[in-house]
């Protein structure tokens, strides 16, 4: 069986940045896994996820997603994009639209240009959207405007939109960084359960190891653009995790110094 994600020797530097954001990254993910990318701020987690989503270009190396090689300098064909779902750190919802409209927006990629423009959704679209909202516990909020919701409720709308897309791979960037620990645990469980129910593979990033280890099947540790370790969740040691954060200041210049010393 082909891997869901296959990355080999990936290098990338943001435009204008002195140092690469990713260096020699290699990663293979099999169908049905729930992988967490652990690492301090600036480790390159967001960058890696955006490349997998086909939103960042100008990298070198080999990347394929769902059996399709990604182009290093162009977005994937539109037809391939609904298969990859993304849960954004800042939710990226249309604030003035209703919850249902936002969730249905996840269906637009699977519709004809004309139907998508007019928002003429099929009964199947509506079923998928309502199932996604039910799974996310926001069935009661269907007609509320997003700008009237709390942060936790918005997060659930963002997840429901992603699920409505019926993706085979779900990428989530720090999906719980804006929530308190109790809520964060609920949300991570929600994402991994919903993904498992749909047979989707999940890769999410986090800088809260305790929570992440409870729901992930595999842990990939990252520091300053490199993969430090990659283990099944049972084999990860506390020391390894502590090492990711040790000596790593939150600000960029000190990270840069560390890399020069290495």
């Amino acid at each position: 069986m082909t891997r869901v994600v296959d990355i080999d020797d990936l290098d990338f530097a943001h435009a204008g940045a002195d140092l690469p954001a990713l260096e020699g990254v290699g990663l293979g993910v099999e169908a049905g896994e729930a992988v967490v990318l652990l690492g301090p701020s600036g480790a390159g987690k967001t960058t890696l996820l955006a490349i997998l989503d086909g939103r960042l270009h100008g990298w070198t190396g080999r990347v394929s997603v769902l059996g399709r090689p990604l182009s290093p300098d162009a977005p994937p064909p539109a037809a391939a994009r609904p298969d990859i779902g993304f849960i954004f750190q800042e939710f990226a919802l249309v604030e003035r639209s209703s919850v249902l409209r936002n969730v249905l927006n996840g269906r637009l990629g699977r519709m004809s240009t004309f139907a998508a423009l007019l928002g003429r959704h099929s009964v199947h679209d509506l079923d998928v959207a309502h199932q996604a909202m039910a799974d996310c516990g926001i069935g009661e909020l269907t007609h509320r405007r997003v700008d009237s919701l709390s942060g936790g409720q918005r997060q659930r709308v963002a997840i429901a939109r992603c699920l409505a897309q019926e993706p085979r791979l779900i990428l989530a960037d720090e999906p719980v960084s804006n929530l308190d620990p109790a809520r964060a645990g609920e949300i991570l469980t929600l994402i991994t359960r919903a993904a498992a129910k749909r047979g989707a593979t999940t890769i999410f990033s986090s800088h809260q190891p305790e929570l992440a280890l409870r729901v992930a099947s595999r842990v990939v540790g990252m520091t300053v653009g490199r993969i430090a370790f990659d283990h099944p969740v049972g084999d990860v040691s506390e020391q390894e995790i502590a090492a990711l954060y040790r000596n790593v200041a939150q600000d960029w210049p000190i990270e840069a110094e560390l890399r020069l010393v290495q």
């Binding site: 391939a80 993304f86 927006n105 637009l108 990629g109 699977r110 519709m111 998508a116």
Partner: peptide, 18 residues
């Protein structure tokens, strides 16, 4: 949100509308 819809495969007109 425009980039989110593009990532979900929504076309240019659908992004403009929604």
């Amino acid at each position: 949100p425009i980039e989110a819809l593009e990532s979900a495969g929504a076309g240019r007109l659908a992004r403009l509308r929604h």
